[in-house]
């Protein structure tokens, strides 16, 4: 089971308190009516699926109930960092103490 640092509660909690919420940082096409089927299909259905570091969203649903971002390795399951929604890059390690 993962031990996840919630960047809002600022505590490590067990995985069962959280829910996975899919890939992070997906950009919705700004004018959906104008984009091609390829662009719209890519936005709706195509996701990163790397062997390695993956940026994803989680929600702390039995805690603060807020969504946040995580950078996690999909092979080792090491959590590199968690950071707040709206932040686009992994902050320095002092904010997200995942060893």
């Amino acid at each position: 089971m993962l031990r996840i640092f919630c960047p809002y509660c600022e505590e490590h909690r067990e995985e069962v308190e959280f829910h996975y919420a899919g890939q992070a940082h997906i950009q919705r096409p700004s004018v959906p009516d104008d984009c091609s089927d390829e662009t719209w299909g890519a936005y709706l259905y195509f996701r990163n699926n790397p062997r390695g570091q993956h940026r994803e969203m989680w929600v702390h649903n039995t805690g603060c109930r807020k969504f946040f971002n995580m950078c996690r390795d999909t092979v080792t399951y090491e959590i590199v960092a968690t950071y707040r929604l709206g932040e686009t890059s992994v902050p320095n390690s002092s904010r997200a103490p995942h060893d």
Partner: peptide, 13 residues
């Protein structure tokens, strides 16, 4: 397991 993963194991819950 809900999250993307390549570990051929799995969560106990």
């Amino acid at each position: 397991d809900s999250y993307v993963g390549y570990g051929q194991r799995g969560s106990v819950q």
